[in-house]
Design a protein around this nucleic acid. Structure first.
Length: 491
RNA sequence: CGGGGUGUAGCGCAGUCCGGUUAGCGCACCUGGUUUGGGACCAGGGGGUCGCAGGUUCGAAUCCUGCCACCCCGACCA
């Protein structure tokens, strides 16, 4: 195996790409823009799914499944929605192949043309609201709180493993409500769920805010989002929660009889996070030696590596280790004992560092004599020799400490890389020299936003929910503004 | 879609300018031995339609023409 990753400082982008491949998370597939998620990468996603799914259920949601294909006409029912997604849709036009006339291979059978083309879902609002029409007659049928775990396809021009792929895995929640207020509360509630997940599980601090008119979801009234900061100073949109108003109810004619005897359009929300989170997780914590995973999402929390000179010791070590594993499992710790004799300890040390396993225990002849083990932390790369007695408690505590510690580190990084500026010159200088989040006054117009984007590549990430009101002037136009907004270059 | 680049073993590359034995190297892989507390060493071995198609030539990885794929930068983008 070739040693050493490209360093972050040298080439952040190459570092990321190499890391994803070498840590066995994912690789490019034979199909352009689509990735193969390898078992180790997929198990991180499964950890994420597990935690999120529980949180969705705890907030009253149920899972369901809607079709992969959407009749083309559905997409055009909501004007903004079609505008936003039409350019990146995969389209199914036929349902059959046949042997080609010259006998070499297969061709699309022109006889088998679909009457109406199907698009592969880029998101499921349309097919779901078309279904909700049949599910909802009365206020008694509301709310509907449904989530689906699915794959979607957006034919992106340029793709990067996990961060932007043509096909990706995600969850999309789609809820229907009787009142505007209730839908808005749902939208905000799910934003909180995402923020909590990001911070508690991924150990990634996030900003919570609302998108500007030009950045919001196609078809939404308001898009709420969480934004994370990566180590290269670029922002990553990590999750979105949309207040759809009555837009999709209008488009699909979803009305309900109100308590008062009237007839009203249903209010909707939708919210989603995707496998992009895996990319964000990698970029938030990892270093030049490889992944650094938060214990709560690490597929393996502890790896134990035996160091063996002769066969007799091996039996003794196995015995010791097995009793330790049993105790750790009892405490809910996921532990992997790598006693393969096909790889040397040094090789394993490097391998598990690359894969971001939070804690590593090594046990050899020295330890057998002294009743000790060597314990090494992935996040700090420190190691010490500790007693084997009650080591499971030490491990348990250390895992919690690592989880907190990498969150704190990421939070400090974000704070150090969040700036406030009062002028456009200062804005450009900070973006160029430092990057990160830059708070500045903005006049609220799409024109200004667009010009700043053209000139600096920075976009408005969000308008913070808890931003304080203050009188100021737009850094670009000088027009009055009562709030700063958050700019950054973004993925 | 514009600009640039690359296609040679599983991976990373040299060889191409200036055509000429059997196409090399590192890693990985297989066998045997010695090793094992930070990516071991020695010896032996296997693996190639040189992206595809056509052309020039006694002879093409190398020259010519066409095509394809991928990567990077831009444009685009929940």
């Amino acid at each position: 195996m070739s040693k050493g990753l490209p360093s972050r400082a040298e080439d952040y982008s190459a570092w990321y790409n190499e890391l994803v491949k070498r840590a066995d998370l994912a690789e490019n597939s034979a199909v352009r823009g689509c990735m193969v998620i390898k078992p180790y990468g997929y198990s991180i996603w499964e950890k994420m799914q597990g935690a999120l799914d529980q949180m969705f259920k705890d907030t009253g949601h149920s899972n369901a499944y809607f079709p992969l294909f959407i009749p083309k006409s559905y997409l055009s029912r909501e004007a903004d929605h079609v505008e936003g997604f039409a350019k990146e849709c995969a389209v199914v036009t036929h349902y059959r192949l046949k042997a080609s006339d010259n006998g070499s291979g297969l061709v699309v059978d022109p006889e088998a043309k679909l009457e109406e083309e199907l698009i592969v879902r880029p998101t499921s609002e349309t097919v779901i609201w078309n279904t909700y029409k049949n599910w909802i007659q009365s206020y008694r049928d509301l709310p509907i709180l449904v989530n689906q775990w699915a794959n979607v396809v957006r034919w992106e021009m340029r793709t990067r493993l996990f961060l932007r792929t043509a096909e990706f895995l995600w969850q999309e929640g789609h809820t229907a409500h009787a009142t505007r207020m209730e839908a808005i509360e749902e939208t905000q509630k799910m934003l909180k769920v995402y923020a909590t997940f990001a911070e508690k599980f991924m150990a990634v601090p996030v900003l919570q805010g609302v998108k500007t008119e030009s950045e919001k979801f196609a078809g939404a009234v308001d898009t709420y989002c969480i934004e994370a900061l990566m180590q290269d100073g670029k922002a990553l949109q990590a999750g979105t929660s949309h207040f759809l108003g009555q837009n999709f109810a209008k488009a699909f004619d979803v009305k309900f009889a109100t308590k008062e005897g009237g007839l009203d359009l249903v209010w909707g929300t939708s919210w989603g996070v995707s496998t992009r989170l895996v990319g964000g997780l990698i970029m938030a914590h990892s270093d030049d030696k490889g992944l650094v995973l938060p214990p709560k999402l690490a597929p393996i929390q502890v790896v134990i590596i035996p160091i063996v000179r002769d066969k007799d010791q091996y039996a003794l070590i196995n015995e010791k280790v097995n009793s330790i594993i049993e105790k750790m499992r009892f405490h809910g710790i996921s532990v992997h004992y790598d006693n393969r004799d096909t790889h040397k300890p040094g090789w394993k040390f490097a391998e598990y560092e690359l894969k971001g396993v939070p804690l590593r225990l090594a046990i050899g002849p020295r330890d057998l004599e002294n009743n000790t083990m060597e314990i090494a932390r992935r996040d700090t790369l420190t190691k010490e020799t500790v007693s084997m007695d009650n080591i499971e408690m030490l491990v348990k505590n250390l895992l919690e400490e690592i989880q907190d510690s990498i969150y704190q580190k990421a939070l400090n990084f974000r704070e150090e890389n969040t700036s406030e500026v009062e002028s456009y010159d200062e804005f450009k200088k900070v973006l160029k020299d430092k990057g990160g989040f830059v708070k500045a006054h903005w006049d609220g117009t799409a024109e200004t936003e667009e010009r700043i984007k053209k000139e600096t590549k920075a976009t408005i990430r969000c308008i913070l929910l808890d931003e304080k009101e203050e009188q100021g002037k737009c850094i670009y136009s000088g027009k009055p503004s009562n709030k700063k907004v958050v700019f950054a270059k973004a993925y």
